[in-house]
Write a protein that binds this DNA or RNA. Structure first.
Lengths: 153, 153
DNA sequence: CACAAATGGTTGCGCGCGCAACTTTTACGC
DNA sequence: GCGTAAAAGTTGCGCGCGCAACCATTTGTG
């Protein structure tokens, strides 16, 4: 414990991993949201709902909330907003009448089909800033943290 | 580009790096904020101001804003809040009377001295979930992304 | 079968954020 | 030096978020 005495005298925020991680997440999110915000008028919750419903047709709000780790009220409002824009539609579930099955409309599917390739291309562009081996290292480290924090799945 | 055709059919949010990064940042932030929130009654902006002022005595709000990448209004309100709690104090700068030099009070220095070791210990605990070499890989990858996005320093 | 507990989902409320506008002071251009 | 632009910092405003409370429905338990 003597070894870390020096680093405790002053905490350097710029070298502090939690801070760097947050700054990085914000930076990456901004880099990405250029696409779905300016180009398609989606904010973060709406984008996540679109992304989830696009691959899990007929899922419930509850499923979206768990899958995206967003608060259920945030999901509820994002869905309401997207429904008003006629990008998704809801039908009461036959099995459980508390639930409502969420689906993309025709316009929603069109947007999804246009949006996903652009977003994935952005991700590739971003990750192309480092060599393959380094990327593997980054992902492995992220996975370790996710496991430690009970986030992965 | 043929190789990625399959992955474009459906975007899996759980494997999407921007989303994972955001989730990770939130998780790490929560893991950390247990300390400064419940124990010291600080929220994220207040904690960042404390951390910055603690190592840069007499700095300005502008400096804090750049250093933490927070909006200047967010900084302004965090400072006002901390001043009300008498953890920091402000004195008009002699050189430039628009500025106000921000310093920790005696109580602020006491809290800082108590807080920083706990926070750094939390960081170490977190990073101890992976072997040393993997941590090096994670940090290298993060640095590459920071450079690419023009974030570092 | 009835009643309590739990679940899916929505809404009212308070709060904190970012934007824009503003005040005060300093720097720049001629 | 005077006037305009720019910078430090604060404040009013609208908005989106999370919390808690709520409604409707379903599940569990005696």
């Amino acid at each position: 414990m003597i070894a870390r005495a020096a680093s405790e005298l002053g905490l350097e925020l710029a070298a502090f991993v939690p801070y760097r991680l947050n700054r990085l997440a914000v930076g990456v999110s901004n880099h990405l949201s250029d696409i779905y915000r300016e180009r398609f008028g989606l904010d973060v919750p709406a984008w996540r709902v679109m992304a989830t419903v696009g691959s899990q047709h007929g899922c419930t709000a509850q499923y979206i909330a768990q899958s995206t780790r967003m608060h259920k009220t945030r999901v509820s409002r994002a869905i309401a907003h997207l429904e008003k824009r006629e990008l998704i539609e809801r039908a009461p579930s036959t099995a459980d009448r508390r639930e409502r099955e969420v689906r993309l409309t025709k316009a929603g599917r069109r947007m999804y089909a246009e949006l996903v390739p652009l977003v994935l291309e952005r991700e590739r562009d971003l990750l192309a800033c480092m060599p393959r081996e380094q990327l593997r290292g980054l992902l492995a480290g992220m996975e370790a943290l996710e496991t430690f924090l009970g986030l992965q799945d």
